[in-house]
């Protein structure tokens, strides 16, 4: 079985059942360490020894969101993100989790906030047009595809300031 986060073989398997819902977590050695799971080889076999040596806790602490204190293991376990800053803190692993939940999608296409900066707006519009172009081509709507292609080239030639008209896409 592969790791939930990468393609390496999973060595840590956790099954939890809460409110009748079964959740499984499978992690490779690196991501298990990242999530704060203690590896068998890391701990002294004797609990007393571990108390004396103070090495009972995993040596690698899982990173936590500086804003809300949520670890990525908690996000995975509950399928709930802690706060807006978690999206920045866990961008890479969260990106993979979102990609799986969203049928492979990796970037937003659609409306933006009213106060969005011009560069962000331009990138979003470009993605939206590229998607519309692909749809038009797949439906063999070539006139529409040509219009969209022209709009894309206009957008890429325009300076960011020129693309700020209107608040919403």
């Amino acid at each position: 079985m592969k790791c939930d986060i990468c393609d390496k073989p999973a060595v840590v398997h956790e099954v939890t059942i809460a409110h009748g819902v079964k959740k499984e977590v499978h992690l490779c050695i690196d991501h298990a360490r990242e999530a704060g799971v203690a590896m068998p080889g890391q701990q002294p076999g004797n609990k007393l020894l571990s108390k004396i040596s103070g090495s009972g806790k995993p040596t690698v602490m899982a990173p936590r969101c500086p804003e809300c204190g949520t670890s990525f293991a908690q996000v995975r376990q509950h399928s709930l993100i802690g706060c807006p800053a978690c999206y920045d803190t866990f961008e890479e692993p969260l990106g993979r989790l979102i990609e799986r939940a969203q049928a492979g999608a990796t970037h937003h296409i659609g409306r933006g906030v009213a106060n969005e900066d011009s560069q962000s707006k331009r990138q979003r519009e470009e993605r939206q047009l590229m998607q519309a172009l692909a749809t038009a081509l797949s439906r063999e709507q070539y006139e529409r595809a040509a219009e969209i292609r022209d709009r894309i080239s206009q957008l890429s030639q325009a300076t960011p300031e020129e693309t700020t008209e209107g608040d919403k896409a």
Partner: peptide, 10 residues
């Protein structure tokens, strides 16, 4: 910019 509107659930 990348994610759009952020939500509690992915």
């Amino acid at each position: 910019e990348r994610w759009g509107y952020l939500s509690a659930c992915p």
